[in-house]
Amino acid sequence: MSLYSIGEVARICGINPVTLRAWQRRYGLLKPQRTEGGHRLFDDNDLETIRTILGWINRGVPVSQVKGLLEGSITPHPSGWSQLEQKLLSVLQEEKTQKVRQLIIEFGREYPPESLVNNVLRPLRTRLVSNASTLYLRGLLDGVLIEHAVMCMNAARKKAGTKVLLAGWGEIDRTELWLEAIARSGDGLHIDLLPDPLQDPHFEGVQAKLILLWAEGKLTSVQRTRYLHWQQLGLPVSLLGSAAVLLQTPPDEEPDAIIR
């Protein structure tokens, strides 16, 4: 599992390091590891927690109530995007998978695919991973999402579009590939998706006009070299996921050196 400094987490999640410190010390929302020098280190589970916190705050939940939400002791009052999320969760908890399918289709008609994915589907999946008893429901949801992604990709192919290859690289959350396919289904793309992540990809000779490559965490030195090689060859490879954010950011100049 990858480890991230507070500066890296701030850039990946789009949040100020001061806020992250406050969430930890004032509200007890985070429990990062520490280096021997006392600097905070966050893992992928921490990133999921931070995204969950941001999701609730962006929907108007006071930060003082978030700990209760994380612990399951209080229930959020749904509004806006969270109302759609709550509606999906309610039918999912009743295991009415056909109704879940219908709701996602209905929401897809009313909202842009990218907004639906980022504001409803991804937050709901994050919410369902916070408790072992909900992992079964997350599995049911993932099956529906894969079906919906296939439907979206097939619908897009009925119109003129650009041929795109969508693949994963290394250890990733595989459902993210299908969510990305849904999010991009309104962009005029004909997506060919590789469901199994690649460990040693070779894209020389691939006929796609664009190669979307989803990777999570820090690229290894081998991966970084490979990606730079593709760029030098002029291959149309676009890196997605948290790896893309980390690749574009310099090392943290102030790794929480002042306030610990």
Rank of each mutant, 00 (worst) to 15 (best):
A149I: 02
V150H: 09
A155S: 06
R138T: 05
H202G: 05
C152I: 03
I146F: 02
E147Y: 01
V164R: 01
R127H: 13
G139W: 03
Y136A: 15
T175Y: 00
V120M: 10
D192N: 07
L141T: 06
S185H: 05
Q232C: 10
D187T: 06
T175C: 11
L213E: 07
Q232A: 10
A208L: 05
H190L: 12
H229P: 00
L233T: 09
S133D: 15
I211E: 03
G170K: 10
A132V: 06
G143K: 08
D142W: 04
G143L: 09
L145Y: 02
L219F: 11
V120T: 08
A208V: 04
E180N: 07
T126Q: 14
L135W: 10
L140P: 01
L128Y: 00
R127C: 09
L219M: 15
D192G: 00
R224G: 15
L128E: 10
V222E: 15
L145D: 07
V150W: 08
G161T: 11
T162K: 09
A167V: 03
D173T: 05
L198P: 04
G161F: 07
A160N: 12
I211P: 02
L189G: 07
T162H: 04
Q199D: 13
A149S: 13
S133Q: 15
A181L: 05
Q207T: 11
W178F: 15
A132F: 03
S133H: 12
H148W: 04
L145F: 04
D200Y: 11
D187Y: 05
L121W: 03
L210C: 08
H190I: 05
Q232Y: 01
V129H: 01
E147K: 04
